[in-house]
Amino acid sequence: MKNKMKLKNKLELKNKLELKNKLKDIISKSPLIETLIFVGFVIVSGILCGSFVNELTVANKIVWKDSFKILPTYLIFIYTFFIYQYNKFLYNERMDITKFSDEIYVAAYVKKSLYPELVESFKKDIRDGNTDNFNKFDDLIDIKALMNRDNKDKGNDKL
């Protein structure tokens, strides 16, 4: 019974991570989607602030002492938390991208990504008796060539 629960929890976590990665890809690869989310935040901010002021206004005067007695105050706090989470997501995404401007990081990332394939290739070479390529790992991957490719934005948004 416990094993079934653990398996179910692992599957739920895996599904959540897949959904998070899909959303991350959609938002980070499309300036249009990012702009629409920003516009949505602006509209919701206006509505919440308007309702906040409306609730505080009594006889054409704002009664500030009632600020924490009304629902819009708490909705604004919750809304601020959501904006923080979204901005944190954007910040982390941009920081992940800037890591790739560092040649050493890119070299390590590419080597890590290719490591399983290279190990299999080396195992095959060992079985075949070829040991010439073992000291040429760095020569297999030309990082400078990878980083100097023309990767300019062509203005094509992906939706």
Rank of each mutant, 00 (worst) to 15 (best):
N15W: 02
S30E: 02
L71D: 12
Y115R: 15
T98I: 15
I37W: 01
I126P: 00
K154H: 07
L114Q: 03
D96V: 08
I43F: 09
D142I: 07
K14D: 08
D132E: 10
M147Q: 14
I70T: 09
T80N: 07
K14G: 01
G40E: 10
P31D: 07
D139I: 04
Y86L: 09
I26N: 04
Y109P: 01
K112E: 15
W64R: 09
L23K: 05
S67N: 13
E55K: 06
K16F: 05
M95F: 10
V119M: 08
E117S: 06
L19H: 11
F89T: 13
V42G: 01
Y91L: 15
A59P: 01
R94H: 13
L90W: 02
V106E: 09
N15K: 08
N92L: 13
K10T: 11
Q85D: 14
A145F: 04
N21W: 04
L19A: 08
F122W: 12
K16G: 07
T98P: 01
E12P: 00
N92I: 08
D125C: 09
V119G: 02
N148I: 11
I37F: 01
D96I: 04
K136V: 08
F122A: 03
V119A: 05
E103R: 12
N135Q: 11
E34M: 03
K2H: 05
K112C: 07
T80H: 05
K124L: 09
K69I: 07
G129R: 08
F38S: 06
L56V: 15
K136C: 03
K123N: 12
